[in-house]
């Protein structure tokens, strides 16, 4: 049983469960998941080995009409399988709490970013670049983003799978103070990703996506300049050129 657990755990941890990771928040989450895979494999192996053994060993021979042993319980065993799982899940809860604090820790130099969702379109606003707006999300690598969320019509949800971070955007109105509409994430891999809406928002939910480009600080600054010029050239039009 132990061998099976070890083999199972090793195989399952090797498995690339999550796909690519591209943020500083991803490794702690992935590690938590791997630890859970090992623990789960352990529990599942115990259950399945006992189960398989019992089925193989105690299966009735044809025509056997006898009864099993009249065992009604065993208090020590029952206490054990109440207490041990309690310890395991409380360990999991404590560990998760630590990871949660870790991935939500704020940096001093975070770049503010405003994300607005409406059926079925994403808009990104850069307060540090005089409120420049874009339909495509460009962010510099290795700098924490302080993301502010707003929904204009129904509930949407912001998710970049490679970043592991997700948060709903809620149409808030006057009660908006009570809604936790802010999160942080630190992309640490350059590349092009997809922002996916994960809360059913209507007919266009399936196609409510946006392109996410993570690039070096220089490339990002260059992109901001280009956008600002394009916007000025278009007479301060509503949305950035090339975005739509």
């Amino acid at each position: 049983m132990l061998a099976l657990t070890v083999v199972g755990s090793v195989v399952l941890v090797q498995f690339d469960w999550f796909g690519d990771a591209a943020s500083e928040e991803a490794p702690p989450i992935d590690t938590l998941f791997d630890v859970m895979v090992v623990l789960s494999t352990f529990v599942f192996s115990i259950v399945m080995v006992m189960f398989g053994y019992a089925i193989w060993k105690f299966r009735a021979r044809p025509g056997d009409e006898s009864d099993g042993a009249p065992i009604h319980g065993n208090t020590k065993l029952e206490i054990a399988w109440t207490v041990i799982p309690t310890i395991i899940v409380l360990f999991g809860a404590g560990y998760s709490w630590i990871v949660l604090d870790d991935i939500e820790a704020r940096a001093d130099d975070a770049m503010p970013l405003k994300v607005t969702a409406q059926q079925f379109k994403w808009t990104f606003e850069y307060p540090e670049a005089d409120g420049l707006r874009s339909d495509e999300l460009h962010v510099p690598v290795d700098r924490q983003l302080d993301v502010q969320l707003e929904a204009l019509d129904v509930v949407h949800s912001f998710w970049v799978p490679e970043w592991r971070i997700k948060r709903d955007l809620v149409p808030a109105g006057e009660g908006g103070d009570e809604i936790d509409d802010e999160f942080v994430v630190t992309p640490n891999e350059e590349g092009t990703f997809s922002l996916v809406c994960t809360e059913l928002c209507g007919l266009g939910h399936t196609t409510m996506r946006a392109t996410v480009v993570v690039e070096s600080q220089e490339e990002f600054d260059q992109w901001l300049d280009d956008q600002a010029q394009a916007e000025a050239g278009a007479g301060g039009g509503s949305s950035a050129a090339g975005g739509t």
């Binding site: 999550f18 938590l32 599942f44 899940v89 999991g92 990871v99 799978p161 971070i165």
Partner: peptide, 21 residues
Amino acid sequence: TIGGISGVMLGMVPIDIHVSD
């Protein structure tokens, strides 16, 4: 048992943030 185990994982906030929805 499999459904219960994936339920425990979903109960953990950091994992849930990723796999929710």
